[in-house]
């Protein structure tokens, strides 16, 4: 990739009290690339995404963004209190009004239709994730950041969700940075994998990471089958 990165983290560290959550993490996200962060619980994956969005203060390091970078973000948990009457359309129209046509467009891209007028809190878990994905797609983002977007989805549901994300990438040409637990799916659909455990253990193309000793040490060798799946699925479309 010779293009300038959209966003670049330089040696960033984040502390909560005296505990180091992230230490000297550096990464670059290039246009159009799907990057997945994997790592055990408590490895700082969500914190890294929040730091990139700017909602967590850095104790060290810096983040360089391309000037005027448009970022869409899907947070890990969105607990909207059921006492807050909010339709899907209205949720997408916060804090700025968005035209109805654009709302319908991003909802369609996220695989939902005819739900702009439904109350958000009455949707199923999968529908909510899609609404939040749609929200992240508003305003034609160059970078879409997704924090465990398939939480609460069953296996077919999450497989479908990842296909949707690949489609969105090829349709919009945006870069995607996500956190995921589903290693086999991650391996199948990412251009770049970062294995995080407070620091970057290893990073690279999925096949490189999957064979790295650091990755094996964290996840064991149980992902061999997933790697085979990765190779199998990706013989026909890759590096476009």
């Amino acid at each position: 990739m010779s293009q300038l990165p959209l966003i670049q983290a330089n040696e960033l560290s984040v502390h909560r009290g005296t505990d180091a959550i992230l230490q000297h993490v550096s990464l670059r996200i290039h246009p159009g690339e799907i990057t997945t962060i994997v790592g055990p619980n408590g490895s700082g994956k969500s914190t890294l995404l929040k730091a990139l969005v700017g909602s967590v203060p850095l104790s060290h390091g810096s983040i360089d963004r391309q000037p005027g970078l448009r970022v869409g973000y899907l947070p890990q948990t969105v607990n909207i209190d059921p006492t807050l009457p909010l339709t899907v359309g209205r949720l997408l129209s916060l804090p700025k009004m968005v035209k109805r046509a654009e709302i319908d467009q991003v909802l369609a891209q996220a695989g939902l239709s005819d739900c702009a007028d439904r109350p958000f809190t009455q949707l199923s878990g999968g529908q909510r994730q899609r609404v939040l994905l749609a929200r992240a797609l508003l305003g034609n983002p160059q970078l879409v950041i997704l924090d465990e977007p398939t939480q609460g989805l069953d296996q077919p549901g999450s497989a479908h969700f990842y296909r949707q994300i690949e489609e969105i990438r090829s349709e919009l040409g945006c870069a995607i940075l996500m956190v995921s637990h589903e290693l086999h799916v991650v391996m199948a659909s990412s251009d770049h994998v970062i294995c995080l455990n407070g620091h970057v253990c290893c990073a690279g193309r999925p096949e490189q990471v999957a064979t790295a000793p650091e990755y094996r040490a964290l996840f064991g060798t149980g992902t061999q089958g997933a790697l085979a799946l990765y190779r199998h699925e990706h013989t026909h479309h890759h590096d476009h």
């Binding site: 929040k50 969005v53 947070p75 969105v78 909207i80 909010l86 804090p95 950041i145």
Partner: peptide, 21 residues
């Protein structure tokens, strides 16, 4: 109003949309 609403919905979402919760 709208900034208060998005900050109420989710703090990180607000931050990403340029609103300081």
């Amino acid at each position: 109003w709208n900034r208060l609403l998005i900050a109420t919905v989710n703090e990180e979402m607000a931050q990403a949309a340029g609103v300081n919760p």
